[in-house]
C-alpha cells in the first residue's frame, strides 16, 4: 500500500511538471487507439487505414477541445460508412443528428465518454466507464454513456448489415437501409445495456455520496452486482445471446480498474475518521472528516564511496583566491 502511495505521488509530481506535454500526448494516444479500433471494426475506407493519415488525424485531435475530438471521430465514422454505401451513411448521420439535437447540452462536460464507451464495449468492459462516471462525475454523465452505447450498437448493426453479403448496391440500398434499421431497433441487447449502464451510474453516484465508511468501495461493489444482475436476468428473460463468462470477467476487471483509478485519484484513510461537532448562530454542525492517505516519498541519498580525485587543474582555485584577496582589500 505504501509503495502504491509513493508511486501515486511520483506520478502526480511528473504530471504536474510535464502537464503541458502529457495532456496532448494522452489525447494523441487515445485518438490513435480509437482510430485503430475504428479501422478494425469498420474499416471500409482504405485511405483512412494509411499510417500517415492516422498520425496526422491523431495529432490534430491532440490539440482540439473534447467536443471537437468527438466531432472528428464522428466524421471519420461517417466517412467509413460512406465508403461502403453513400446512401447507407444517411441513417448513421441521422442517428448522430438526433443524439446531438436531444443531448448535446448534457454531454458537453463528458464528451470523451461517447468515444470511450464503444471502445469499452469492444473490450468487454462497459462497466468501467459507468463506474468511473458514478464515482467521479455528476449523474448527468449517464447521458454521455447512453449516447456512447447507442453509437456502439449503431455500428454493430451497420457491420452486421454490411456482412450479410452481396454488398450494398444502388438497387438494394432500400433493403439494406431497412435491414440496418431492423438490426438496430430490434436489437434486444441495446435497451438492456442502456438500462444497466444508466442504473449503474446513478446508483454508484448515490452510494458514493453517503456519509458511510468505504462508500466508494461499497458503490463499486453494488454497481458491479447490479450490472451483472440486470444483464444476466435481462439476457435470460429477453433471450438475448450473450457471453456470460466474458461479461463476468469484464465486470471483475472493470471493478478492479475502477478501484485502482479511484485509489489514485482520491485515497481515503477510513481508519482515521474524525467526528467534529460545532455550532454557529444559526446551525449545529455534525461533520465527519475522512483524511486523505499521504506518504512522503523517500529521499534518495547518494553516498560517495570513492575518494575525490585530485586533478592538476588549479584555475578555479586561483580565481577563488583572487576574489577573496580583492574582497579583503575592499
Amino acid at each position: 500500500m505504501t509503495k502504491l502511495l509513493v508511486w501515486r505521488d511520483r506520478l502526480r509530481v511528473i504530471y504536474r511538471d510535464y502537464e503541458v506535454l502529457l495532456r496532448p500526448l494522452w489525447k494523441f494516444v487515445l485518438s490513435l487507439i480509437v482510430l485503430i479500433f475504428m479501422n478494425q471494426t469498420l474499416g471500409y475506407d482504405e485511405r483512412l487505414k494509411n499510417g500517415i493519415v492516422l498520425v496526422v488525424v491523431s495529432l490534430i485531435s491532440a490539440f482540439v477541445p473534447p467536443a471537437g475530438f468527438v466531432l472528428m471521430m464522428a466524421m471519420l465514422a461517417l466517412v467509413h460508412a460512406y465508403a461502403l454505401a453513400s446512401l447507407l451513411a444517411l441513417p448513421v448521420l441521422g442517428v448522430f443528428l438526433v443524439l446531438f439535437l436531444l443531448f448535446e447540452r448534457y454531454v458537453s462536460a463528458y464528451s470523451y465518454v461517447i468515444v470511450l464507451m464503444p471502445l469499452a464495449m469492444f473490450f468487454h468492459i462497459p462497466l468501467l466507464p459507468a463506474l468511473l462516471l458514478g464515482l467521479m462525475a455528476e449523474p448527468v454523465g449517464a447521458v454521455s454513456s447512453f449516447c456512447g452505447m447507442v453509437v456502439y450498437f449503431l455500428f454493430e448493426s451497420f457491420k452486421n448489415t454490411a456482412a450479410l453479403g452481396g454488398g450494398v448496391t444502388l438497387d438494394n440500398v432500400m433493403n439494406s437501409y431497412q435491414g440496418l434499421m431492423e438490426e438496430f431497433l430490434q436489437n434486444k441487447a441495446m435497451p438492456l445495456y442502456l438500462a444497466a449502464v444508466t442504473v449503474v451510474v446513478l446508483i454508484v453516484y448515490l452510494i458514493r455520496r453517503l456519509a458511510v465508511p468505504h462508500a466508494f468501495l461499497i458503490a463499486v461493489l453494488a454497481g458491479t452486482v447490479l450490472f451483472l444482475t440486470i444483464l444476466l436476468i435481462g439476457e435470460l428473460a429477453l433471450r438475448v445471446e450473450g457471453e456470460p463468462l466474458l461479461l463476468l470477467l469484464g465486470s471483475l476487471v472493470s471493478a478492479g480498474l475502477a478501484m485502482l483509478i479511484q485509489f489514485i485519484a482520491l485515497p481515503l484513510d477510513y481508519s482515521r475518521i474524525e467526528q467534529i461537532e460545532f455550532s454557529d448562530d444559526d446551525y449545529y454542525y455534525y461533520v465527519k472528516a475522512v483524511p486523505k492517505m499521504q506518504v512522503a516519498a523517500p529521499k534518495v541519498r547518494v553516498k560517495r564511496i570513492n575518494a575525490q580525485k585530485i586533478t592538476n587543474n588549479t584555475a578555479d582555485l586561483y580565481e577563488t583566491l583572487q576574489q577573496v584577496s580583492s574582497e579583503k582589500k575592499e
Partner: peptide, 19 residues
C-alpha cells in the same frame, strides 16, 4: 426547436424503414 427537429428526423427515418 431541437426536439421538434429531432422528432421530425426520427419520424422520417421510421417512415423510410417501414414505408
Amino acid at each position: 426547436f431541437r426536439v421538434t427537429a429531432a422528432m421530425a428526423l426520427i419520424l422520417f427515418m421510421l417512415a423510410a424503414y417501414k414505408a
